[in-house]
Design a protein around this nucleic acid. Structure first.
Lengths: 243, 243
DNA sequence: TATCGTCCGTGCGGTGGGGCACATACGAAA
DNA sequence: TTTCGTATGTGCCCCACCGCACGGACGATA
């Protein structure tokens, strides 16, 4: 149980809870291993659980009629998946899919509803996170229209880093291309550039970030914009961290 | 005052309120004429009012560092501007700007907060509308990545029609290009095609929709997707209308 | 009716990205 | 060590869209 506690605290939203509320919620959290490409829910399914990732990363995916998929949201230890459940459900995404293997703590949606009603801090954190999610989605819309694949790849890598807390990312160009909604070759091309510039290195599904500052210099404004909103909105709960 | 009442009811969200709640809120609503390009707020300003458009249309605009602007949300009689105010504020947009002249009813943000706390139906409608807004933004992200300017123009025209309740739209190609974040010439080109096909006609800032069904056949899935969510989420308040 | 500002049409070269086909290179399993 | 599957590199053609420049057309105004 102490393990569960320690593990769950890696999620920034859970860690943001007052200790007493966290302790009470703890018993309803269940750690679960998530593997790449695992589907947490499909569009029209009832959403049984809310997930708080710690070392896993989850994407909200839309798939067009033509079969091209595009990310509308990405969540790791900085967030939660399924807020919208307690909050009504805007079915903006067709699917929630595991983008990076790891652990998430899940809680029954029905329990979440109860806790939200009972614990003001928990409710407020959910609301705040929803706002950051809106900011994230908006910025994606903008980035999709305005910025190059190179920049979007940088953004994706940096966000992954922030959400996973590691510079070693296990993901192939092909997976990334599915999330960004572009060709695999385009991702490979951009990755090669970043590699030539010494910002990253990679081989067969293992990407290592070598130069964080360098990536931040290449990435478009969208990365900082979303981060700023996240820090601002959740400032009262989370001390701003530079890592 | 009866005029105010009749006018305000043109807004679908206000019309959705139980009569008794609407009557109580009515005194706090103030009709106001909005002119094209009028700015309702800038990013870092306090948002003093919440707007319920009836015959006006308002865009939430983001402007990139390079000076290109992109729409992240569009609201007319189907919605309201400033939900996020009561609800915290995710500063996803840099500016709210009048996209089509007309009337909106506005209410002080402080009053909105009070009413939301006091009237469950009003609160619920605000929440539901927020969800439809999330759906709208998500779909924009997708549309921006996947679909042609021609299709996006159709979507813009149809959404304008739904939000304004008229087939006669007063807007230039240049204005539309700013909202879509593309070249004016690209809009002109697409508009010319639609005109050749007999779907619309236009001249010097006046666009008339000639064939609604035709446009619906050309537009991408995104239009229907957003509409479906709107109707589904607000179904309990608004009877589905085909117009 | 002449002028002027705004709105819209059109052409041209450049470029990012798509679709496709195939070559290469690495790693796991036999 | 060979084999085989998967991950990544590369080249080719094509198209939508961009940036730019300019021409025509319409409407208000005097």
């Amino acid at each position: 149980m102490t393990d569960t506690k320690h593990g769950a605290l890696q999620n920034k939203l859970l860690a943001a809870l007052p200790e007493i509320e966290f302790e009470n919620i703890l018993s309803k959290l269940e750690p679960i291993d998530l593997k790449v490409n695992e589907v947490l829910w499909e569009m029209d399914e009832k959403r049984e659980f809310v997930y708080f990732p710690t070392t896993a990363m989850i994407c909200l995916i839309y798939e067009s009629q033509e079969g091209v998929s595009v990310e509308v949201g990405m969540t790791g230890r900085q967030g939660m998946v399924g807020v919208v459940t307690f909050f009504g459900d805007a079915r903006m995404a067709k699917r929630a899919i595991v983008q990076h293997e790891g652990v998430a703590y899940r809680m029954k949606a029905t329990d979440v509803e109860k806790e939200v009603a009972r614990r003001p801090d928990f409710q407020d954190i959910c609301m705040c996170y929803t706002q950051t999610l809106i900011a994230q989605i908006s910025q994606s819309a903008i980035c999709n229209r305005l910025h190059s694949i190179r920049q979007q790849l940088c953004r994706y890598l940096l966000v992954s880093h922030d959400n996973l807390g590691t510079k070693k990312l296990q993901m192939t160009h092909d997976q990334i291309s599915n999330v960004l909604g572009v060709r695999r070759e385009s991702v490979s091309g951009a990755a090669l550039e970043l590699s030539d510039e010494g910002l990253i290195e990679y081989s067969r599904g293992n990407i290592t970030i070598l130069d964080l500052k360098g990536l931040r210099a290449v990435v478009c404004e969208c990365y900082a914009a979303v981060n700023d909103q996240y820090n601002r909105i959740l400032a009262k709960y989370i001390s701003t961290h530079d890592s």
